[in-house]
Design a protein around this nucleic acid. Sequence first.
DNA 1: TTGTATGCGTTATCAA
DNA 2: TTGATAACGCATACAA
Lengths: 331, 331
Amino acid sequence: MRVTIKDIGKRVGVTPATVSMVINNSPKISQRTKDKVMQAIKEMNYHPNYIGRSLVKGKTNNIGVVASFFASLFALESVRGIEQSLRKTPYNLVLYSTRGIEENERDMLRRIYYERRADGLIIISLKADQEILDEFKKENVPVVFIEEIVKGAPTVKFNNIKGAFMATEYLIKQGRKEIAIAIGDTGLNAEERLKGYKEALEKHNIEFDQNKIINVLNYSFEEGEEILNVILESEKKIDAVFCGAGDITAIGIMDAAKSRGVKVPDDLAVIGYDDIYISNLTTPSLTTIRQPIAQMGMRSFDLLMEMIEGKAGSESKIISFEPELIIRGSV
Amino acid sequence: MRVTIKDIGKRVGVTPATVSMVINNSPKISQRTKDKVMQAIKEMNYHPNYIGRSLVKGKTNNIGVVASFFASLFALESVRGIEQSLRKTPYNLVLYSTRGIEENERDMLRRIYYERRADGLIIISLKADQEILDEFKKENVPVVFIEEIVKGAPTVKFNNIKGAFMATEYLIKQGRKEIAIAIGDTGLNAEERLKGYKEALEKHNIEFDQNKIINVLNYSFEEGEEILNVILESEKKIDAVFCGAGDITAIGIMDAAKSRGVKVPDDLAVIGYDDIYISNLTTPSLTTIRQPIAQMGMRSFDLLMEMIEGKAGSESKIISFEPELIIRGSV
DNA sequence: TTGTATGCGTTATCAA
DNA sequence: TTGATAACGCATACAA
């Protein structure tokens, strides 16, 4: 059987309550009893049972991280950052995957919430409806969102507008005139990056051309080839592409260019988004926008801690992380 | 306040015990009571409290994953695989990082164990001493190891001997005679890969030459340059290198070769280990050994489930995953 | 078929 | 300074 405070109490000749007070460093226990109890704890190799403690305290010391999958670079990098911050605290990380099923999200969040599985939640790239958020608030379960903006809770996210702006402006400053953008057509990120692209054009008095938007669907390496085809078949001679869809697709574009005899960056400048590891190793290496994902994960955890400790409110606010332009060989 | 079985009981006019039995689908409850209770559960939006349930059941429905860090490709890929298998089950994943502090490992494992934090443990690339393992057994907490072999518990790992053998033999069959191996000098993996390398040489009657072992320290891209230097300065003219230290270093070797005017594969054949994403995208693309890390994560979780359900014993055994030779352009 | 009583391991309140 | 007792939410053995 496990050793409990009862056993310790019996051994020392005090009640479990006293043992508990010793464990919790109550100031009103005599040094003598303290010593005796501590001694017994060591000798009997006692460790407090988390479950019992949680039940009476109403606190799990768990932080839940919810995402549709833990498979993407983004989700795993976020987890990495969160874990890094969490090391300073007594909290543990519990991963909840909604298995990519959208209807699951509501259920999942509800369950975590009502079943008392976590003291706070970090929700990665998931939408949550107002109703659930209100429930969470009632019970004081703090929530931080990553990348998705929901009214009534803080969001930690990247400044995509600025990232796209920097990329586009850099292309312009390098003398490119006909700049295409390859970007997904759904989601806040794509929207913002398109906005940044437009803003850069506007600032430099280049007219925005709807035809220069190339729609990206699955963000794959293979899709780079299709994108290159669109570029080559374009009416205007495109001399640069900002691939807001990410480095993987950008590298796909470069790869397709190579086999089609299109020289990067001379014939076509390419700039990516993400700065994944490989981007430094391609030929030419990829100029791109770096997002400090892990850092953002850390910040979201820190914020959640502040909320749990009551140092920060749970009102809507956006904490924005600034991207960085990494200049390499593809522009 | 939260809704508990007490509240449900009051509402319906039964005792909490009855409600509990309904929730747990006891066959000896009349359909009428069942219906009424279920109705109330819905209306009052009741969800069972996990903590309470865990306390009485002695079961947390949590699976702990312990690693020194959750930062490496290997650890995160494993988590990904584990999570994938876990989706079919009611279990949740709790991540425990030992923060890279070796003394922490013991403490960490002990705490998880005694504090009843998890029903089972998957330990990634960590050594655990016999003593702790014996404790775990006493309390019936099943443990599965990934990559590290410990007496008294099953291990899921890759067949490194075979992987190295395949790589080396492929080089031999391509007509290479002077084959170097770049490999770390500590750890089971390095040991096994070196063994596979030797076995391939032996099979093809090539004498093993101690001088062809190139010691790798930090598995970095940059280290590739040093390795190439060793190769070029070698007495015998080396015409191939099996980089058992991994693809990143292998790509570093190729990169250094390019800037030194050494042609891959003509002057020097290079073969890596891991098949990371980028290996398909270098010029030339890297021939390498692929390990299905995520799959292995899945298997380790499945095995743990079998142990928890009593379908599998917890005795020492090794489940080995076979690597795959991915032939590309660098050999 | 349902109710009563008890216990899981801990903490907190009140008395002594 | 310590002990007795109740409580957290739930499940189960036994009684009714």
